[in-house]
């Protein structure tokens, strides 16, 4: 096919244009509007943790939850930005800061647990409940994110879907800690952050399948 003929074909298709993609900030707002009610529903069904009011006054818990939420928000924003051609690349690395803060706070928590209770403070128990917990809470944020990412440009499939997975999993962990009473630094680091990391890697592995150039897939 000649390039001129292709241009004519594409122009003919342009008479019914697809809806313009909203800005990443608006899309972030939409994603939160879909995700937050679901998380509230899961927390209500599971029953908020009995010490939630006490925890809400505890600086360490608030900081950890703040860092988790910031990770989710910045990762979602970065994932949406990565799907828009021509946006600056630094936007994609913004989530590194809250992730570092989140892990740093949990690391500091581990040290504090050690100084208060010695080796007992770093006791690691098996707590598989975190995995289905995060998956359940993350179900709607993850699905909404996947649908939204498919509308963007597949410029960096692994990165954008990985960031989307990180956003959904981190938001799910934020919700989990509202009904799951697990606050020991090492336990949170291993079971909760570990699950978030595994889900992020799992999402990234599906990047090329979820977000791709459609005309290549049809070949």
């Amino acid at each position: 096919m000649k390039t001129e003929d292709l241009i004519r074909t594409l122009a003919a298709e342009a008479r019914s244009p697809p809806r313009r993609l909203r800005s990443p900030a608006v899309r972030l707002g939409l994603w939160l509007c879909v995700s937050v009610p679901w998380i509230a529903l899961v927390v209500a069904v599971m029953g908020p943790r009995p010490d939630l009011a006490i925890k809400a006054e505890e600086t360490r818990w608030l900081l950890e939850q703040g860092a988790t939420l910031m990770t989710a928000v910045t990762a979602a924003m970065a994932a949406f930005c990565a799907g828009v051609p021509g946006r600056p690349r630094w936007e994609r690395s913004v989530p590194l800061a809250p992730v570092a803060l989140w892990i740093g706070l949990l690391g500091a928590g581990c040290l504090r647990d050690w100084s208060l209770a010695g080796p007992q403070g770093l006791a690691l128990q098996v707590d598989w409940a975190c995995v289905p917990g995060i998956v359940t809470v993350g179900l709607v944020p993850g699905t909404a994110m996947a649908i939204m990412l498919r509308r963007g440009a597949p410029l960096a499939p692994v990165l954008s879907v990985g960031l989307g997975g990180l956003a959904a999993a981190a938001l799910a962990d934020f919700g989990l800690r509202l009904f799951h009473a697990q606050d020991a630094g090492l336990m949170v680091l291993v079971w909760q952050v570990g699950t978030v990391a595994a889900l992020t890697a799992f999402s990234a592995a599906f990047g090329h399948r979820l977000v791709r150039w459609r005309h290549l897939a049809a070949r």
Partner: peptide, 21 residues
């Protein structure tokens, strides 16, 4: 050109065209 056509909904008129292209 086909790729551009596929993602034409991602262009933001508030941003410059050339970097997008």
């Amino acid at each position: 050109l086909i790729s551009l056509h596929q993602v034409r909904q991602t262009y933001d008129p508030g941003r410059p065209f050339l970097p997008w292209l």
